[in-house]
Protein backbone atom coordinates (compact mmCIF):
# COMPACT_ATOMS: atom_id res chain seq x y z
CA UNK A 1 0.00 0.00 0.00
CA UNK A 2 1.37 3.42 -0.95
CA UNK A 3 0.46 6.66 0.81
CA UNK A 4 -1.77 7.55 -2.15
CA UNK A 5 -3.68 4.25 -2.12
CA UNK A 6 -7.36 5.07 -1.56
CA UNK A 7 -8.79 3.90 1.74
CA UNK A 8 -11.95 2.56 0.12
CA UNK A 9 -12.69 1.92 -3.54
CA UNK A 10 -15.82 0.26 -4.86
CA UNK A 11 -16.27 -0.60 -8.50
CA UNK A 12 -19.71 -1.48 -9.87
CA UNK A 13 -20.81 -2.52 -6.40
CA UNK A 14 -24.22 -4.15 -6.65
CA UNK A 15 -26.40 -6.11 -4.26
CA UNK A 16 -29.68 -7.74 -5.18
CA UNK A 17 -32.17 -9.47 -2.88
CA UNK A 18 -34.20 -11.57 -5.29
CA UNK A 19 -35.77 -9.13 -7.75
CA UNK A 20 -35.02 -6.12 -5.57
CA UNK A 21 -31.79 -4.25 -6.19
CA UNK A 22 -30.71 -2.60 -2.95
CA UNK A 23 -27.42 -1.20 -4.25
CA UNK A 24 -26.72 -0.68 -7.93
CA UNK A 25 -23.40 -0.03 -9.63
CA UNK A 26 -21.92 2.08 -6.87
CA UNK A 27 -18.48 3.49 -7.75
CA UNK A 28 -16.97 5.19 -4.78
CA UNK A 29 -13.52 6.31 -3.71
CA UNK A 30 -12.53 7.48 -0.25
CA UNK A 31 -9.06 8.93 0.23
CA UNK A 32 -7.00 8.18 3.34
CA UNK A 33 -7.59 10.62 6.17
CA UNK A 34 -11.04 11.65 5.00
CA UNK A 35 -14.01 11.93 7.33
CA UNK A 36 -16.55 10.55 4.92
CA UNK A 37 -20.30 10.89 5.41
CA UNK A 38 -22.51 8.44 3.55
CA UNK A 39 -26.02 9.82 3.40
CA UNK A 40 -29.37 8.84 1.97
CA UNK A 41 -33.04 8.59 2.87
CA UNK A 42 -34.46 5.52 4.62
CA UNK A 43 -34.10 2.39 2.51
CA UNK A 44 -31.65 4.07 0.12
CA UNK A 45 -29.02 1.33 0.51
CA UNK A 46 -26.68 2.88 3.10
CA UNK A 47 -26.65 -0.04 5.52
CA UNK A 48 -26.43 -2.58 2.71
CA UNK A 49 -23.39 -0.74 1.32
CA UNK A 50 -21.68 -0.49 4.70
CA UNK A 51 -22.39 -4.18 5.36
CA UNK A 52 -20.71 -5.06 2.07
CA UNK A 53 -17.73 -2.82 2.80
CA UNK A 54 -17.21 -4.42 6.20
CA UNK A 55 -17.67 -8.01 5.10
CA UNK A 56 -21.06 -8.62 6.70
CA UNK A 57 -22.70 -9.07 3.31
CA UNK A 58 -21.35 -10.41 0.05
CA UNK A 59 -21.86 -8.24 -3.06
CA UNK A 60 -23.85 -9.72 -5.93
CA UNK A 61 -21.34 -8.15 -8.32
CA UNK A 62 -18.61 -5.56 -8.32
CA UNK A 63 -15.49 -5.26 -6.25
CA UNK A 64 -14.35 -3.62 -3.01
CA UNK A 65 -10.80 -2.62 -2.24
CA UNK A 66 -9.88 -1.49 1.25
CA UNK A 67 -6.42 0.09 1.51
CA UNK A 68 -5.62 -1.58 -1.81
CA UNK A 69 -6.67 -5.03 -0.64
CA UNK A 70 -9.49 -6.93 -2.34
CA UNK A 71 -12.05 -7.80 0.33
CA UNK A 72 -12.91 -11.07 -1.41
CA UNK A 73 -9.31 -12.20 -1.88
CA UNK A 74 -7.91 -11.01 1.47
CA UNK A 75 -10.85 -10.83 3.88
CA UNK A 76 -8.84 -11.41 7.06
CA UNK A 77 -6.14 -8.88 6.20
CA UNK A 78 -8.83 -6.31 5.41
CA UNK A 79 -10.66 -6.99 8.66
CA UNK A 80 -7.50 -6.40 10.67
CA UNK A 81 -7.22 -2.92 9.17
CA UNK A 82 -10.78 -1.79 9.82
CA UNK A 83 -13.01 -1.17 12.81
CA UNK A 84 -16.77 -1.36 12.63
CA UNK A 85 -19.72 -0.23 14.70
CA UNK A 86 -22.50 -2.13 12.94
CA UNK A 87 -26.21 -1.41 13.09
CA UNK A 88 -26.80 -4.06 15.79
CA UNK A 89 -23.67 -3.00 17.76
CA UNK A 90 -22.43 -6.64 17.91
CA UNK A 91 -22.27 -6.69 21.71
CA UNK A 92 -22.46 -9.71 23.99
CA UNK A 93 -24.96 -8.79 26.68
CA UNK A 94 -23.72 -11.27 29.28
CA UNK A 95 -20.22 -9.86 29.48
CA UNK A 96 -19.08 -6.78 31.37
CA UNK A 97 -17.67 -3.89 29.34
CA UNK A 98 -14.14 -4.78 30.35
CA UNK A 99 -14.58 -8.47 29.50
CA UNK A 100 -16.06 -7.60 26.14
CA UNK A 101 -13.17 -5.31 25.18
CA UNK A 102 -10.66 -7.95 26.29
CA UNK A 103 -12.52 -10.50 24.19
CA UNK A 104 -12.51 -8.22 21.14
CA UNK A 105 -8.83 -7.43 21.64
CA UNK A 106 -8.00 -11.10 21.62
CA UNK A 107 -10.18 -11.65 18.56
CA UNK A 108 -8.07 -9.06 16.73
CA UNK A 109 -4.86 -10.69 17.86
CA UNK A 110 -3.69 -8.12 20.42
CA UNK A 111 -1.55 -9.54 23.18
CA UNK A 112 -3.01 -9.67 26.68
CA UNK A 113 -0.97 -6.83 28.17
CA UNK A 114 -1.78 -4.43 25.35
CA UNK A 115 -5.44 -5.49 25.40
CA UNK A 116 -5.67 -4.86 29.14
CA UNK A 117 -3.94 -1.50 28.82
CA UNK A 118 -6.19 -0.33 25.98
CA UNK A 119 -9.31 -1.71 27.69
CA UNK A 120 -8.61 0.38 30.76
CA UNK A 121 -7.81 3.44 28.67
CA UNK A 122 -10.90 3.11 26.49
CA UNK A 123 -13.26 2.50 29.41
CA UNK A 124 -11.84 5.53 31.15
CA UNK A 125 -12.08 7.68 28.04
CA UNK A 126 -15.68 6.61 27.42
CA UNK A 127 -16.64 7.18 31.09
CA UNK A 128 -17.58 3.51 31.38
CA UNK A 129 -15.08 2.56 34.05
CA UNK A 130 -17.17 3.47 37.09
CA UNK A 131 -19.28 0.29 37.10
CA UNK A 132 -16.88 -2.52 36.24
CA UNK A 133 -19.25 -5.33 37.27
CA UNK A 134 -22.23 -4.11 35.31
CA UNK A 135 -23.26 -6.44 32.47
CA UNK A 136 -23.63 -4.92 29.00
CA UNK A 137 -27.28 -5.96 28.93
CA UNK A 138 -27.83 -3.55 31.83
CA UNK A 139 -26.11 -0.63 30.03
CA UNK A 140 -28.17 2.24 28.71
CA UNK A 141 -28.32 2.61 24.92
CA UNK A 142 -25.78 5.44 24.96
CA UNK A 143 -23.37 3.38 27.06
CA UNK A 144 -23.74 0.47 24.65
CA UNK A 145 -22.94 2.77 21.71
CA UNK A 146 -19.83 4.05 23.44
CA UNK A 147 -18.72 0.52 24.25
CA UNK A 148 -19.31 -0.59 20.65
CA UNK A 149 -17.15 2.30 19.47
CA UNK A 150 -14.47 1.41 21.99
CA UNK A 151 -14.50 -2.16 20.69
CA UNK A 152 -14.24 -0.93 17.12
CA UNK A 153 -11.04 1.00 17.82
CA UNK A 154 -9.27 -1.22 20.34
CA UNK A 155 -6.99 -2.66 17.66
CA UNK A 156 -6.18 0.79 16.24
CA UNK A 157 -7.88 0.45 12.86
CA UNK A 158 -6.83 2.55 9.87
CA UNK A 159 -10.43 2.85 8.71
CA UNK A 160 -13.47 3.10 10.96
CA UNK A 161 -16.95 2.29 9.66
CA UNK A 162 -19.81 3.64 11.74
CA UNK A 163 -23.45 2.88 11.04
CA UNK A 164 -25.59 5.58 12.69
CA UNK A 165 -23.16 6.17 15.59
CA UNK A 166 -25.14 9.06 17.07
CA UNK A 167 -28.59 7.49 17.00
CA UNK A 168 -30.07 7.38 20.52
CA UNK A 169 -27.00 8.97 22.09
CA UNK A 170 -27.35 11.91 24.46
CA UNK A 171 -25.47 15.18 23.89
CA UNK A 172 -22.74 14.40 26.42
CA UNK A 173 -22.02 10.94 25.03
CA UNK A 174 -22.15 12.36 21.49
CA UNK A 175 -19.55 14.92 22.55
CA UNK A 176 -17.23 12.15 23.78
CA UNK A 177 -17.68 10.21 20.52
CA UNK A 178 -17.07 13.28 18.34
CA UNK A 179 -13.91 14.19 20.28
CA UNK A 180 -12.58 10.71 19.81
CA UNK A 181 -13.39 10.56 16.09
CA UNK A 182 -11.77 13.93 15.43
CA UNK A 183 -8.70 12.75 17.32
CA UNK A 184 -8.48 9.70 15.09
CA UNK A 185 -8.76 11.82 11.94
CA UNK A 186 -6.01 14.09 13.24
CA UNK A 187 -3.80 11.00 13.59
CA UNK A 188 -4.42 9.94 9.98
CA UNK A 189 -7.26 7.43 10.24
CA UNK A 190 -10.16 7.36 7.77
CA UNK A 191 -13.75 7.40 9.00
CA UNK A 192 -16.75 6.31 6.98
CA UNK A 193 -20.06 6.99 8.66
CA UNK A 194 -23.75 6.94 7.94
CA UNK A 195 -26.05 9.20 9.90
CA UNK A 196 -29.43 10.84 9.73
CA UNK A 197 -28.24 13.69 11.93
CA UNK A 198 -27.13 16.03 9.16
CA UNK A 199 -25.91 18.77 11.51
CA UNK A 200 -23.35 16.36 12.98
CA UNK A 201 -22.30 15.11 9.55
CA UNK A 202 -21.86 18.67 8.36
CA UNK A 203 -19.75 19.55 11.39
CA UNK A 204 -17.56 16.44 11.22
CA UNK A 205 -17.31 15.26 7.62
CA UNK A 206 -15.07 16.67 4.96
CA UNK A 207 -16.48 14.54 2.18
CA UNK A 208 -20.01 13.39 1.47
CA UNK A 209 -21.69 10.82 -0.76
CA UNK A 210 -25.45 10.64 -1.21
CA UNK A 211 -27.20 7.45 -2.21
CA UNK A 212 -30.85 7.10 -3.17
CA UNK A 213 -32.76 4.06 -4.37
CA UNK A 214 -29.52 2.10 -4.44
CA UNK A 215 -27.72 4.50 -6.77
CA UNK A 216 -24.97 6.90 -5.88
CA UNK A 217 -26.33 10.33 -6.78
CA UNK A 218 -23.37 12.47 -5.92
CA UNK A 219 -20.13 12.51 -3.99
CA UNK A 220 -17.27 14.86 -3.32
CA UNK A 221 -16.08 17.35 -0.76
CA UNK A 222 -18.71 19.29 1.12
CA UNK A 223 -17.57 22.49 -0.61
CA UNK A 224 -17.84 20.86 -4.05
CA UNK A 225 -21.37 19.69 -3.29
CA UNK A 226 -22.29 23.09 -1.92
CA UNK A 227 -20.92 24.79 -5.01
CA UNK A 228 -22.65 22.32 -7.35
CA UNK A 229 -26.04 22.68 -5.74
CA UNK A 230 -25.71 26.47 -5.41
CA UNK A 231 -24.84 26.74 -9.10
CA UNK A 232 -27.74 24.52 -10.09
CA UNK A 233 -30.14 26.64 -8.08
CA UNK A 234 -28.45 29.89 -9.19
CA UNK A 235 -27.97 30.94 -5.61
CA UNK A 236 -24.96 32.39 -3.92
CA UNK A 237 -26.12 31.74 -0.34
CA UNK A 238 -24.07 29.39 1.90
CA UNK A 239 -26.18 26.21 1.86
CA UNK A 240 -26.44 23.89 4.84
CA UNK A 241 -26.02 20.15 4.35
CA UNK A 242 -29.72 19.69 5.06
CA UNK A 243 -30.56 22.06 2.22
CA UNK A 244 -28.13 20.29 -0.08
CA UNK A 245 -29.59 16.92 0.90
CA UNK A 246 -33.17 18.06 0.33
CA UNK A 247 -32.27 19.59 -3.01
CA UNK A 248 -30.47 16.46 -4.16
CA UNK A 249 -32.81 13.83 -2.75
CA UNK A 250 -35.77 15.42 -1.02
CA UNK A 251 -37.17 17.38 -3.94
CA UNK A 252 -37.54 14.20 -5.91
CA UNK A 253 -39.35 12.47 -3.04
CA UNK A 254 -41.66 15.37 -2.25
CA UNK A 255 -42.42 15.88 -5.93
CA UNK A 256 -43.50 12.25 -6.17
CA UNK A 257 -45.81 12.48 -3.17
CA UNK A 258 -49.20 14.11 -3.68
CA UNK A 259 -50.19 16.82 -1.22
CA UNK A 260 -52.16 14.94 1.42
CA UNK A 261 -53.44 15.70 4.82
CA UNK A 262 -54.58 13.45 7.65
CA UNK A 263 -57.72 15.38 8.46
CA UNK A 264 -58.68 13.17 11.41
CA UNK A 265 -55.45 13.95 13.28
CA UNK A 266 -55.78 16.45 16.09
Amino acid sequence: MTPTTPAVVTTGLTRRFGDFTAVQEVNLSVAPGQFFGFLGPNGAGKSTTIKMLTGLLAPTSGSIHILGLDTTASPLEVKRQIGVVPEGLALFGRLTGSEYLKFVGQMYGLDKVLTAQRTAELLDFMSLASEPKKLITDYSHGMQKKLALAAAVIHGPKILFLDEPFEGVDAIAAGTLKAMLQGMIARGATIFLTSHVLEIVERLCTHIAIIDKGRLITHGSLEDLRAGVATASNGSRHLTLEEIFIQVVGSQHTADAPARELTWLG
Binding site: L110, E121, F125, D170, T176
Partner: peptide
Protein backbone atom coordinates in the same frame (compact mmCIF):
# COMPACT_ATOMS: atom_id res chain seq x y z
CA UNK B 1 -34.39 -3.61 30.01
CA UNK B 2 -31.63 -1.17 30.61
CA UNK B 3 -32.02 1.29 33.43
CA UNK B 4 -32.15 4.96 32.68
CA UNK B 5 -28.91 6.33 31.43
CA UNK B 6 -26.74 8.04 33.98
CA UNK B 7 -24.89 10.70 32.05
CA UNK B 8 -21.27 11.11 33.04
CA UNK B 9 -20.45 14.35 34.80
CA UNK B 10 -19.85 17.13 32.31
CA UNK B 11 -16.58 18.01 33.99
CA UNK B 12 -15.29 14.53 33.25
CA UNK B 13 -15.34 15.00 29.48
CA UNK B 14 -12.55 17.53 29.03
CA UNK B 15 -10.38 15.74 31.57
CA UNK B 16 -10.71 12.37 29.81
CA UNK B 17 -7.38 10.96 28.81
CA UNK B 18 -6.58 11.24 25.13
CA UNK B 19 -6.37 8.12 23.06
CA UNK B 20 -3.13 7.34 21.40
CA UNK B 21 -4.01 4.15 19.64
CA UNK B 22 -1.96 3.19 16.65
CA UNK B 23 -2.73 0.55 14.08
CA UNK B 24 -1.26 -2.73 15.15
CA UNK B 25 -0.06 -5.75 13.29
CA UNK B 26 0.24 -7.98 16.31
CA UNK B 27 -1.26 -11.34 15.72
CA UNK B 28 -0.33 -13.52 18.61
Amino acid sequence: AAPAATPPPIAAVPSSPSLTLTPTQTLS
